[in-house]
Nucleic acid binder design. Structure first.
Lengths: 157, 157
DNA sequence: GTGCCTGCAAAGTGTTTGCAGTAGA
DNA sequence: TCTACTGCAAACACTTTGCAGGCAC
C-alpha cells in the first residue's frame, strides 16, 4: 500500500469522524498517524506501545476506544485467529477481499487473495438461503522457517 | 450423524483416554455422554449446564479440563467466530472437512462442505511456501428468518 | 459553554490453575 | 496403593466501563 493510499485512507477516516460529530483529539491524532503509517498487522497492545512512543499521554483505554471506530469506518479490519488477542489489519481499505495465513509459531501473517472464495460464497447463498455479510478465511500453518528449522527465531515478525 | 456413528466416536474417545492412561471418572463419563448424544454445536458453558442436569457434581473446571482432551482426540472441533467464547462441534469425526456459516443475529450455525477450500489450500501452499495445519472459513450472514423479519425470534437456535 | 473525550483504576468475561481431599485402576 | 482427578475459589489476560476532570469546537 503506497504512501498516497495511506494518506487517502487517513483522510477518509477523518471524514468518518467529522461525519459522526466526533472530535480529533491529540491522542486520537497520534493513534491515527501510527495506524496509517504502517503496513504491519498489529495487536491493541502494540498499537498502544507505538502510540506512546510518539505521545506518552495516550492511554490503553483510548486505544481500545478508538479501535472500534477504525473498524467501523472500514479502514481497518479486525482479525481473530483464535488467540487470546485480536490482530488488526491496516491494509483493508485498499484490498477488502484479501485473507490471511498465520504461522503457528512466529505468528507471521501473510495476505493473499483468491477468486475461489467468491465462488464459495455464491455456492452457499444458493444452497443454504443465507445472505452473506462477511467472510474470513483464516489459515494456520508453518512458515518456511518453521518447516526447515523446527522453530522460528523471532516471534511476531 | 447417526446414533451408531456417535457411539463409534464415543468408543474411539474412550480408547484415546485409555491409551494415555487417563481415567474414566463419573464426571468425565457424564460429559462424554452429553457430547456424544447431540449434534448441536455448543459452548463450554452449555456443556456444563447439560452435564449438570445429569450429574450435579460436574464442575466448570472439569468441563474446561475435558474439552482439550476432546479436541486433541479429534472427536470434537473447536471453532472461533471472533465472539467472546468458543463453540465446539461434535460432528467433526465424521466430516473433518466441513465449515460453518453463522447467523449474525440468532447465531444459528449451519455446516457445509466445499471442494473449493482444498483447491485454495493447494494454491496457497504452492504460492506462499506455507504448509497448512488448520483452516477456518467462517462466514457471517443473515439466515432466512433474519432476512424476512429483520430480526430472529430466538437466539442460539 | 457544551458535551465528547481523556486517564485512571476497578470491574467484567471467559478460561486456567493451585490446593487439598477423593477415587479410579 | 498410587496418582490422576475433582471442586472450589483465586488467579489470569484481554477488554470494557464508571468517574471526575479536560479540551475540541
Amino acid at each position: 500500500m503506497s504512501v498516497a493510499d495511506k494518506n487517502l485512507a487517513k483522510e477518509k477516516f477523518m471524514h468518518f469522524l467529522a461525519h459522526k460529530n466526533l472530535r480529533i483529539t491529540s491522542q486520537r491524532q497520534t493513534i491515527i498517524d501510527v495506524v496509517f503509517s504502517t503496513d504491519k498487522h498489529f495487536t491493541a497492545e502494540e498499537l498502544l506501545e507505538w502510540s506512546r512512543q510518539r505521545d506518552k499521554s495516550v492511554s490503553r483505554a483510548t486505544v481500545y476506544r478508538t479501535l472500534p471506530l477504525l473498524t467501523e469506518s472500514g479502514m481497518v479490519r479486525e482479525m481473530d485467529f483464535g488467540k487470546d488477542y485480536k490482530f488488526y489489519d491496516p491494509n483493508y481499505a485498499d484490498h477488502p477481499n484479501h485473507n490471511h495465513i498465520i504461522c503457528q509459531d512466529c505468528e507471521k501473517i501473510v495476505e493473499f487473495e483468491s477468486d475461489k472464495i467468491e465462488e464459495i460464497e455464491t455456492e452457499i447463498t444458493k444452497r443454504l438461503g443465507f445472505s452473506i455479510k462477511a467472510q474470513r478465511l483464516q489459515i494456520t500453518g508453518s512458515c518456511e522457517e518453521l518447516k526447515k528449522l523446527g522453530a522460528c527465531k523471532k516471534k511476531g515478525c
